[in-house]
């Protein structure tokens, strides 16, 4: 799968779609929330590799550093019901369809909030470029964002120099 050094995999959509196993987040307050809660087990890949004595697949499995990897052709069937996971607050990727929001490891990634992005100081420094930010902390009188874009990276470089 990791055939490209840039990470740009031009494989078929069907293969990519079966990559992660999504689950429903349980609880009355979690209607419409889904999370990646498990991956395909490596066992299925290894068994397939052994069974077919396919050295390429075996090599791929080892190249993943022993971590559990994804079986590209694995996946649920149309009859298989979706599993439910508890809302532990430690879920990897979460999709909330109620508000169309994606959360990565409890950090909501979004374009910078309007009142911040429209602030004259922010405009003076960054211009009108669209910036993505991750909300780190929110208190009554303080909100901490981490800018997540190449603009922020460039600014960091400028400060260092």
């Amino acid at each position: 799968m990791s055939s490209s050094t840039t990470g740009s995999l031009r494989t078929s959509a069907a293969v990519l779609d079966a990559a992660n196993r999504w689950s429903v987040i349980g609880g009355h307050h979690s209607v419409g929330r889904f999370a990646v809660a498990s991956t395909r087990t490596v066992a299925s890949v290894d068994q397939a590799a052994v069974a077919s004595n396919d050295k390429t697949k075996d090599k791929d499995a080892r190249a993943d550093g022993g971590l559990k990897t994804i079986a590209a052709d694995g996946g649920g069937s149309d009859d298989e019901a979706v599993e439910e996971v508890a809302d532990t607050g430690q879920l990897g990727v979460e999709m909330d369809l109620q508000i169309g929001q994606m959360t990565l490891r409890s950090k909501h990634l979004s374009a910078l909030e309007s009142k911040v992005a429209n602030h004259c100081d922010v405009k003076l420094i960054f211009g009108d470029a669209t910036m993505q930010a991750s909300l780190l902390e929110k208190a009554e009188h303080r909100t901490r964002y981490k800018l997540a874009s190449t603009v922020a990276a460039r600014l960091t470089c400028l400060r260092r120099s």
Binding site: S8, L16, T39, L67, I70, A72, G92, L109, S149, T150
Partner: peptide, 28 residues
């Protein structure tokens, strides 16, 4: 559809993004 995010399991219940992040993903 150019990138399959790769998830790894650590510490029993945590599912983390693998460190090898594709270029166009690291743009943001």
């Amino acid at each position: 559809l150019r990138w399959t995010p790769r998830w790894t399991q650590r510490n029993g219940h945590q599912y983390l993004l693998e460190e090898r992040v594709p270029l166009h993903f690291s743009g943001w």
